[in-house]
Simulated assay, not measured.
Amino acid sequence: MKVLLVYESLETPSTTVRALQFRECFEQDAQIQATFIGRTSEAMNAVMKRWPWRPSLRRPATVAESAILRRRESKIVDLARRCDVVMMMTVPSWPLHQRLADLPNTRLITDLIDALWLPCFQSQGWQHIHQMLATSDTVICENEYTAGYVRDHCPNVSVVPDGPQLDVFDRHRDSVVAPQETCRIGWIGGKYTADALYRVFEPLESIFAQHPDVQLRLVGADPDRIPRFENVRYSVLPQYDQTTMVREVLAMDIGIFPMFNTAESLYRGTLKTKIYMSGQAAVIGQRLGENETLIQDGVNGLLAADDQQWCDALSRLIGDVPLRRQVAAAGLETMRRDFTRQRCYQRLRDAILDVQE
Results as ranks from 00 to 15, higher is better:
Met1Tyr: 03
Lys2Ile: 00
Leu10Cys: 08
Thr15Met: 09
Thr16Pro: 08
Arg18His: 04
Phe26Gly: 07
Glu27Tyr: 04
Ala43Thr: 10
Asn45Trp: 01
Ala46Asp: 00
Met48Phe: 04
Trp51Glu: 02
Ser56Asp: 00
Leu57Asn: 03
Ala64Met: 10
Arg71Leu: 10
Arg72Tyr: 00
Arg82Phe: 00
Cys83Arg: 07
Cys83Thr: 05
Asp84Gly: 14
Thr90Arg: 15
Leu96Trp: 00
Leu100Pro: 08
Ala101Gln: 05
Leu103Tyr: 01
Thr106Val: 09
Thr106Glu: 05
Leu108Arg: 05
Ile109Arg: 13
Ala115Thr: 03
Trp117Cys: 13
Cys120Pro: 01
Gln122Asn: 05
Trp126Asp: 02
Gln127Phe: 01
Ile140Asn: 06
Glu142Val: 15
Tyr145Trp: 08
His153Thr: 03
Cys154Pro: 10
Gln165His: 06
Asp167Ala: 14
Arg171Asp: 00
Thr182Met: 11
Ile185Met: 09
Lys191Glu: 00
Tyr192Ser: 14
Tyr198His: 12
Pro203Asp: 01
Ser206Thr: 09
Val214Ala: 15
Gln215Ile: 07
Leu216Pro: 09
Asp224Tyr: 13
Glu230His: 10
Ser235Pro: 04
Ser235Val: 02
Asp241Ala: 13
Thr244Met: 15
Met245Gln: 15
Arg247Pro: 07
Glu248Gly: 07
Val249Ser: 09
Leu250Ala: 02
Phe260Ser: 09
Ser265Glu: 02
Arg268Tyr: 01
Gly269Ser: 14
Ser278Tyr: 01
Gln280Ser: 14
Asn291Trp: 03
Val299Met: 11
Leu302Gly: 07
Asp306His: 14
Gln309Tyr: 08
Asp312Ser: 15
Arg316Gln: 13
Leu317Val: 00
Gln326Val: 03
Ala329Lys: 12
Asp338His: 15
Tyr345Leu: 11
Leu348Gly: 10
Arg349Cys: 11
Gln356Gly: 14
